[in-house]
């Protein structure tokens, strides 16, 4: 689907955390290619490594708890890992921006929305005060908060949660970033607001030809917005393909189980599927497949050998020894 050079290429990224002197494997070697003008969904349970991935891209893994063991993150070919802090800062906010889950917590309560936009555009775009003011005004128009100037002078607590999320999006896109990371941007909102925010993000992506990494635990939300999707489980990408293809032909047992756990009108009356067992402990480092202990299809080889993420058809990769076998759950 994409032959161009990726905007951001993550290769074999391994991150470990040290918790109470014990190692926890947060990312067990993930690779994702993210392209301009494409929304890449990253779906997984909490603790699977979604947020660690986003924090690694933006260079904000908590120090000294997190350690990058190996791998690379390249932005248009430029290696971001081990870039000095001051050079990295120009990327943050300037080229790679981020929208967070709970706008009420991630907006600074002591500054007006206008001020939080202005400081960003003065920093990265070098705008003068009056230009910054005009830019803030323009941005609020873009995210649907332009009807009155009140929002510019408003403090976060004076806005509704939908307006707060729009304000955070305005801040994120203020310096025309090439790449936007949206980490569960709709999870704290109610359903009607969710759809509005998804539409807004999609519109902004098309307008600015941004690349976007859209993180969610909810496949039905990712389905609304993503062009491609990667499924992450226990710090490993287990399947990666085009959005539509994931629903047509899931290859990894985990993905299949995940799809079956989405409420669907066509299966009305039937019990929702749940995945038995518990997520692999981050402190364990098994030689085999990370999903094997919960996998209904697991065979002896699954416990012995870790399956590689291999393309089984064009643009569709899966990390399962039996990806190409027909099977029924």
């Amino acid at each position: 689907m994409n032959t161009a050079e990726p905007l951001i290429a993550i290769e074999n990224l391994r991150v470990e955390f040290t918790q109470e002197k014990r190692r926890a494997f947060a990312l067990r070697g993930i690779s994702i290619s993210l392209y301009r003008n494409e929304v890449h969904g990253l779906v997984g349970e909490s603790g699977s490594g979604k947020t660690v991935t986003s924090m690694a891209i933006i260079g904000l893994l908590p120090k000294p708890a997190a350690k990058i063991l190996s791998g690379s993150i390249r932005y248009e070919g430029q290696e971001l890992l081990f870039l000095p802090e001051d050079e990295l800062r120009a990327y943050r906010g300037g080229k790679i921006a981020m929208v967070f889950q709970e706008p009420a917590k991630y907006l600074n309560p002591a500054f007006t929305v206008g001020e939080q936009i202005r400081e960003m555009v003065t920093l990265h775009m070098g705008l003068e005060r009056s230009q910054a003011e005009a830019r803030a005004h323009e941005l609020l128009g873009l995210v649907g908060l332009g009807k009155d100037d009140r929002v510019l002078k408003a403090y976060p607590h004076e806005l509704s949660s939908g307006m707060k999320q729009r304000a955070m999006i305005a801040i994120a896109i203020s310096c025309n970033p090439d790449f936007l990371i949206a980490d569960e941007p709709t999870t704290s909102l109610d359903v009607t607001l969710q759809l509005q925010i998804l539409k807004l993000l999609k519109r902004l992506k098309n307008m600015k030809s941004m690349g976007m990494l859209f993180i969610s635990h909810d496949l039905s939300v990712i389905r609304e917005i993503a062009d491609r999707v990667s499924v992450i489980y226990a710090g490993k990408i287990v399947e990666s393909t085009r959005m539509a293809r994931l629903f047509e032909h899931p290859m990894h047992p985990y993905t299949r189980l995940l799809l079956m756990s989405i409420p669907d009108a066509s299966r009305k009356g039937k019990r929702l599927a749940t995945i038995a067992g518990q997520v692999l402990d981050a402190k364990d480092d098994p030689p085999g497949c990370v999903f094997a202990p919960r996998c209904p299809m697991a065979k002896e080889v699954c416990y012995r050998e870790s399956p590689k993420l291999i393309a089984h058809e064009a643009g569709h990769a899966s990390a399962c020894h039996f990806a190409e076998e027909a099977w029924a759950l």
């Binding site: 933006i58 904000l60 001051d86 800062r89 120009a90 990327y91 943050r92 906010g93 300037g94 921006a97 981020m98 967070f100 709970e102 917590k105 991630y106 907006l107 600074n108 309560p109 002591a110 500054f111 400081e119 960003m120 920093l123 990265h124 955070m168 801040i171």
Partner: peptide, 26 residues
């Protein structure tokens, strides 16, 4: 330790601004 500090870092602000402007005011 609050989340808005992470957001401020993600904006690319220098640490001094994060400390003396964002965190100190709060």
């Amino acid at each position: 330790s609050k989340e808005y500090v992470i957001a401020a870092r993600a904006k690319g602000l220098p640490e001094s601004v994060i400390r003396y402007k964002h965190a100190l005011k709060n």
